[in-house]
């Protein structure tokens, strides 16, 4: 299922577990956002490249190398992959670079925009730094006097669904 593949890939590149990503409630919305901008075909190419070249690699270093070579370093897929990371962290889809659109065609939706009204508050950024999104998701009076609670990294960078082969 494309949503599962999208979340597995997102887990690999964001450093958050699939449970955490689904827990934001934004997975479907982000999948819709990416599909709307780059189209089903291009997104499928990205997820296929990830699945074919990265998911079977066990060694962590080799895995990172494969991810860079097959996805992040690819002229067409790299900018999309980086945008997916930024989308999860900030809730914002950033406009693709001009030279990308020049080479690969106009996006289905132009510019920089928020994926949904909830996306800002659900950005991974806030969990990563142990802070609340300013102006939203109240943390409780005086909480700023305590050190931020930063979640531990997942025990393995490999997404759970990829590990168990489901």
């Amino acid at each position: 299922m494309i949503l599962d593949d999208f979340v597995a890939f997102s887990s690999e590149v964001t450093g958050f577990t699939e449970f955490d990503l689904i827990g934001t409630g934004q997975a479907e919305s982000y999948l819709r956002t990416v599909t709307e901008v780059v189209g089903e075909r291009t997104l499928a190419d990205l997820l296929d490249a990830y699945r074919a070249r990265v998911t079977d690699t066990g060694d962590e270093q080799a895995r990172a190398g494969q991810l860079t070579g097959a996805v992040l370093g690819d002229d067409r897929l790299g900018p999309i992959a980086r945008n997916i990371i930024k989308l999860w962290y900030s809730g914002t889809w950033f406009a693709l670079p001009d030279d990308w659109t020049g080479r690969f065609g106009a996006p289905g939706r132009e510019g920089t925009f928020n994926a949904s009204p909830q996306a800002y508050t659900q950005g991974l950024l806030w969990y990563a730094i142990g802070a609340n999104p300013p102006g939203a998701r109240a943390p409780g009076y005086g909480s700023w006097a305590s050190p931020p609670l930063i979640p531990a990294l997942p025990p393995s960078p490999v997404p759970q669904s990829v590990r168990t082969g489901s």
Binding site: G23, G25, R137, G140, G142, S143
Partner: peptide, 15 residues
């Protein structure tokens, strides 16, 4: 301290 804790419980429940 219980108040920020309750907000974190809210986040855990939502997830």
């Amino acid at each position: 301290e219980a108040v920020p804790w309750m907000f974190r419980l809210r986040d855990d429940i939502e997830h």
